[in-house]
Design a protein around this nucleic acid. Structure first.
Lengths: 341, 341
DNA sequence: CTGAAAGCGCTTACAG
DNA sequence: CTGAAAGCGCTTACAG
């Protein structure tokens, strides 16, 4: 009784057709292994005839390398993430790694993710999720699976991370707003204990403080459209409403701009300035033309993959925290200093 | 010399600690296999102590099922796709399948994708890519890998597909535009030989014809923002410009609305009506509030996964083409029939 | 350069 | 219910 599913042509069959040993077939498909050109040619011909392709899973069993990297990304509605995902997939593929995607686990625990990550023997893990517990990272550390956090950092020295300089970006935006003549600044916060939110806010606050301005008026947007819209309403209904709103990311800024314009009839930037963070896709759509700070997606993806591959190759836990600068991107959603009233 | 990477705790070690055979360990982790409660308990304790997790790859080798489904999605900047991807991942996870993601292969051939798909022994493949050659689908058919096309269909009877009723959607939009008093309708086309583009256009044309109106004025947007913007300029610069533009998807409609408003100073829908297709995320953002036809993402994902799992379970090539209806979603980007001039 | 052999970590008939 | 054994498709020392 033969296996029914899969043509199931394996190295042994190819070997028989080519009149060589199964080892020779294996070597033919192992880059760098020693096979004579003649043998290789015979084997390739047989393989082509049978439609043979080596079973990557069987290979993994021996080599102890799956060629798979797990990417954990809690949600994809913020355009920044799909863009990042595309880059990560590209870079990883350049190095012959495939991507196992974990997303949309909602409120469920990340435990199941951890389970799968370990069971599927991923060679490494990229965590691109602001909301994820550090627990997963720890499980990986214990299982010896290299991990790199992206767009999230941690005090821990046991796990690498790649972020842009959010604190600096926060300062750039704050300085720009102040130069534009703003004095009452609102802040729509992202997820409370995310490092991006913390650092961007810290940047903003440090500049406000050194400029002798009051702390920002904070409302909570939690990085979601709905919460951000609610937070915007809260700020805009204040008796003394802010003259500028700093949103912890672009995704929220879009909702905030829409609430300001369509629910409160405000003109942007005449009546109020709004800035975001990321330079996500729609930030450059003319309807928003958002003033923001770019996150260098390409550079971040490159650095992440480089760090991860370094760890996979065994650079003994050269745990590094990479921080890349992102530029201020000036749009028309915030009053320009030159147009200062 | 022991393997260095991976704690590499395997079933044999667990067996030794628990004082049972390795088979018993395997059975404990195989749902439905027969193990006595006592044995199972001992094993679970040992497993927990060692941090044991079965190696899914080794299991695959035996069972000939990897538990992995490949999802091919050529690009993620159109928000419709990340949304679809999230749903697919969720549904597949509900059935204990992981997702290997293939995306962003740009202009490169899909051959490398095919190669990887086969090597990694995916149990099935979901093709959510309008631009992908049918070649990949064929390779899979030959390799006996179940395939389902989503948001794309084909005349071929050898491969299943799930789409929404694009022809009907095209008609709904056409009827709505005509009811709104529009007579000169422009069409910004998507990728030329994609079934979505073809069917939506066919719906539009059939209604125009039966209403005695001229064919639409066509420009080519290729489902990309830049091309769509160029196409919009082309149409809007015509001496007799259209009074409505039907964009083959929402993603292009956003760019088209922005060109109309910001480059041509047109008011929407007073000066021109614009409709899209998909009801992608930003379509419901107040700055666009697009009149469009919804693609039932949840239903499509459900149907796709169901079809795929059916094939995997061996429903002998019950090749089906599923077509789901999507509703008209009325926004303010097109003149309402009641406001008819 | 080549082949025979051992073994990666599992599952699964097969006996008991 | 349980264990010993065969085997999934491959890689990789080891001899030659």
């Amino acid at each position: 009784m033969t296996k029914d599913r899969k043509g199931s042509v394996n190295a042994r069959m190819v070997a028989k057709i080519a009149g060589v040993s199964q080892s020779a077939v294996s070597r033919t498909f192992t880059p760098g292994a020693s096979v004579s050109p003649t043998t290789k040619a015979k084997i390739m011909r047989a393989a082509a005839k049978l439609g043979y392709r080596p079973n990557a899973l069987a290979r993994s069993l021996i080599t102890n390398k799956s060629g798979i990297v797990g990417v954990v990304m809690s949600y994809l509605d913020n355009q920044f993430y799909p863009a990042l995902l595309e880059k990560l997939v590209s870079r990883l593929r350049d190095h012959d790694y495939q991507v196992l995607l974990f997303t949309n686990f909602g409120n469920r625990d990340t435990d199941p993710v951890a389970e799968q990550v370990v069971q599927y023997q991923v060679d490494g893990l990229i965590l691109a999720s602001t909301t994820l517990s550090s627990e997963l990272a720890e499980i990986c550390t214990r299982s010896q699976i290299p991990v790199v956090l992206i767009n999230r950092t941690t005090a821990s020295d046991t796990v690498c991370s790649v972020v842009s300089n959010n604190e600096r970006g926060g300062r750039l935006l704050a300085e720009y707003l102040i130069a534009g003549g703003h004095r009452r600044i609102g802040y729509i916060a992202g997820i409370h204990n995310s490092s991006t939110n913390r650092d961007r806010l810290a940047g903003l606050c440090s500049v406000l403080a050194s400029s002798g301005l009051p702390e920002p008026i904070v409302a909570y947007g939690e990085y979601s459209l709905d919460s951000a819209a609610r937070a915007a309403r809260e700020l805009l209904m204040l008796r003394e409403r802010p003259d500028a709103i700093f949103c912890a990311n672009d995704h929220m800024a879009f909702a905030v701009m829409d609430v300001a314009r369509h629910e409160f009839g405000l003109r942007i930037p005449r009546d109020i300035s709004i800035v975001g963070y990321d330079n996500a896709g729609p930030a450059r759509w003319p309807s928003y033309d958002l003033t923001t700070v770019e996150q260098p997606v390409d550079g971040m993806a490159d650095a992440t993959v480089e760090l991860l591959l370094g760890q996979i190759r065994g650079d003994k836990k050269v745990c590094r925290h990479v921080v890349l600068d992102g530029d201020l991107v000036i749009g028309s959603s915030a009053r320009r200093p030159s147009d200062r009233a």
